[in-house]
Computed example of a mutant assay.
Amino acid sequence: MGKTLTDVTLQLKNGTKANWASINPTLAKGELGLESDTAHFKFGDGVNPWTDLAYAGTIVKASASNGQLLIDGIETIIYTLPQAAISLLGGVKSQAAGSGKVVVGSDGTMSVAEVPKADILTTARTLTFSGDVAGNNNFDGSGNVTFALALVSSGVTAGTYTKLTVDAKGRVTAGANITASDVPSLTLSKITDSGTAAAKNVGVAAGNVPLLDSNGKLNSSVIPAMAINEIYTAASQTAMLALSADVGDVCARTDGAGSFMLKALPATTLANWVQLTAPTDVVTSVNGKTGVVVLTTDNVAEGTNLYYTDARATANFNTNFANKTVGGLSDGANVIMSGDSLVIDCGTVS
């Protein structure tokens, strides 16, 4: 079983027709050359240059000059229409002569004696619009006609109005401005953008909307009590218990006893103070170094795991890789050897 390559694109030797003619190469025997702009192709014979080779197959296309076909570049007549006569127009029989008919003369020329329907517009007609619009123009069939139509005045004076009267046709027949009496009384439930505060009473009770006093301040009864945490220092336990501290305040003892936080009042009771303990897992040094420590391989002994060096890498590479065969590599099964058979699978278009 030979190896198979997939996802292979086979690109033929190609170029424009002009480039092939200009370079005029000699293709090897059986070698295929493609004109990229005409889709025509030739097979080489190993002897003749490109311009002396015939295209493969027969090339048929329409002539650009006289409606004939080009077969391998040669003008070829496929069918010739018979000459027109009084009753024959290129193989198509004409109608009998008469008013409104197509007449073919003995020399093959055609003429129309008269088209009766066209007589209707030999005299220009006037089209007039009336009613809600007014305007008119003449039309004789020789070209498009534009009508400048004007709306008939409704009798309403031009202006901007907030209240209108409209008839059954949608025309404005009267206009006026809205007055206070035109606005109906609305309940709060009909006003969608009033907000929830609009339905509340003012005051300081639960559910009321508080108001500012004459000094621009809120009533003290609606302001919650606030505490500001402070940090104190004390030289002894007695001094700490004598502090005017609030819940959450911290006291740093300078006698070495540590720091305490008040969890409840009164501050004079020692049990209301909680000692803050420091972490016990603090790193004091790294490999004998303190402060901002930066270690390199010069500071840490190798042990059983040796450090990388250029000399060691070169020695290991030369020793290990030189003894490997191509087939012994991790992807050696995918390597094409001289004795392998190769199948190029270009895939299937579907």
Rank of each mutant, 00 (worst) to 15 (best):
G2K: 01
T4C: 00
L10V: 15
K17P: 03
A18Q: 12
W20V: 05
W20L: 09
E31L: 04
S36V: 10
D37N: 15
A39M: 15
K42T: 13
D45I: 09
W50H: 13
W50R: 05
W50T: 02
T51H: 13
Y55Q: 02
A62I: 00
S63N: 15
T76V: 13
Y79Q: 08
L81A: 14
P82R: 09
S87T: 13
L89M: 04
K93N: 10
K93L: 10
K93C: 00
V103P: 00
V103A: 02
S106K: 11
S106W: 01
A113D: 01
P116L: 12
K117M: 10
D119L: 15
I120M: 01
L121R: 03
T123Q: 15
A124Y: 05
R125L: 14
R125I: 12
T126S: 12
T126C: 02
L127T: 04
F129P: 03
F129N: 00
G131I: 13
G131W: 11
V133G: 01
G135S: 06
N138D: 14
D140W: 13
T146V: 15
T146C: 01
T146R: 00
V152H: 02
T162F: 04
K163E: 03
L164S: 01
K169H: 11
G170K: 04
A176G: 08
A180C: 03
D182C: 10
I191N: 04
A198R: 06
V202Q: 03
G203W: 11
V209E: 04
P210C: 08
P210V: 09
L211K: 10
L212C: 01
N215E: 14
G216E: 09
K217E: 15
S220V: 09
S221E: 11
S221V: 14
I223W: 07
I223V: 15
E230R: 15
I231P: 00
S236I: 08
L243K: 13
L243Y: 11
C251E: 04
C251D: 13
A252N: 14
R253H: 10
D255T: 08
G256D: 09
G256H: 07
S259L: 05
M261T: 03
L265F: 02
L270Y: 13
W273F: 11
L276Y: 00
T280I: 14
T280F: 07
V283L: 15
V286A: 08
N287A: 15
N287E: 14
G288D: 12
G291W: 06
G291S: 05
V292L: 14
T297M: 07
V300S: 07
L306S: 10
Y308S: 08
A311I: 05
R312N: 14
R312Q: 12
A315L: 08
N316A: 06
A322R: 11
N323M: 04
G328A: 14
G328T: 08
L329N: 07
G332K: 09
A333K: 12
M337R: 00
M337E: 01
S338V: 12
S341M: 00
S341P: 00
V343W: 05
